[in-house]
């Protein structure tokens, strides 16, 4: 049993969208649906400017708000801490969408079913890296077991003192260096 999580270094991310597209291909999503969203924040005044790019996807929260509110239990958490969707149970009520603090859930307008990042659970089960991690061109993403202090991801989190996006909203499993 592991507790999977991710580290994202926004000081390295160049906003190239490779993670978004590979995720869409991996998960065979319609083009207008993406599990990863990009938030940009520009600070400072010309020519002293910084532009931060924050890629946001499901944060695989502990005690996930989406799971709590989901009336059908379509949303559930695996023993490895991955928050998943049972698409056959989802009624499309969108309660989880409004409850998710990270805007991580999208609705497929063909089926009405809600979906979101699945931490590439099928690839991970085969011992591979999630698609967005393996393709990240600037190595801004690291994936692994948060419970293992020797994992790359744990070490990176400690080294960069990475934090969840909104630690005040409860524990999530993507840590950002900002």
């Amino acid at each position: 049993m592991a507790r999977y999580g991710m580290f994202i270094d926004t000081k390295k991310c160049v906003g190239c969208y490779a993670c978004r597209v590979t995720c869409q291909m991996q998960n065979e999503l319609p083009v207008e649906i993406s599990y990863i969203h990009f938030h940009e924040q520009e600070t400072g005044i010309f020519p002293n400017v910084r532009n931060e790019i924050i890629p946001v996807q499901c944060q695989h929260c502990e005690d996930a708000p989406c799971e709590t509110v989901c009336p059908t239990k379509a949303t559930y958490t695996t023993e490895d801490g991955i928050v998943l969707m049972d698409e056959d149970k989802c009624i499309g009520c969108k309660y989880c969408v409004v409850a998710c603090p990270y805007g991580a859930r999208t609705q497929d307008h063909h089926t009405g079913v809600i979906n979101k990042c699945r931490f590439c659970a099928d690839l991970v089960a085969e011992g591979k890296q999630p698609s967005c991690v393996s393709t990240c061109i600037s190595d801004a993403r690291i994936f692994g077991d948060l419970d293992d202090p020797n994992s790359e991801v744990s070490k990176a989190i400690v080294k960069h003192n990475a934090q969840p996006l909104r630690p005040d909203l409860g524990k999530s499993k993507i840590y950002y260096a900002r």
Binding site: N27, Y76, T78, E79, I82, D86, E87, R118, D122, V124
Partner: peptide
């Protein structure tokens, strides 16, 4: 352990 309900 991974849940098996992974299919889409």
């Amino acid at each position: 352990m991974l849940d098996t309900k992974l299919s889409r």
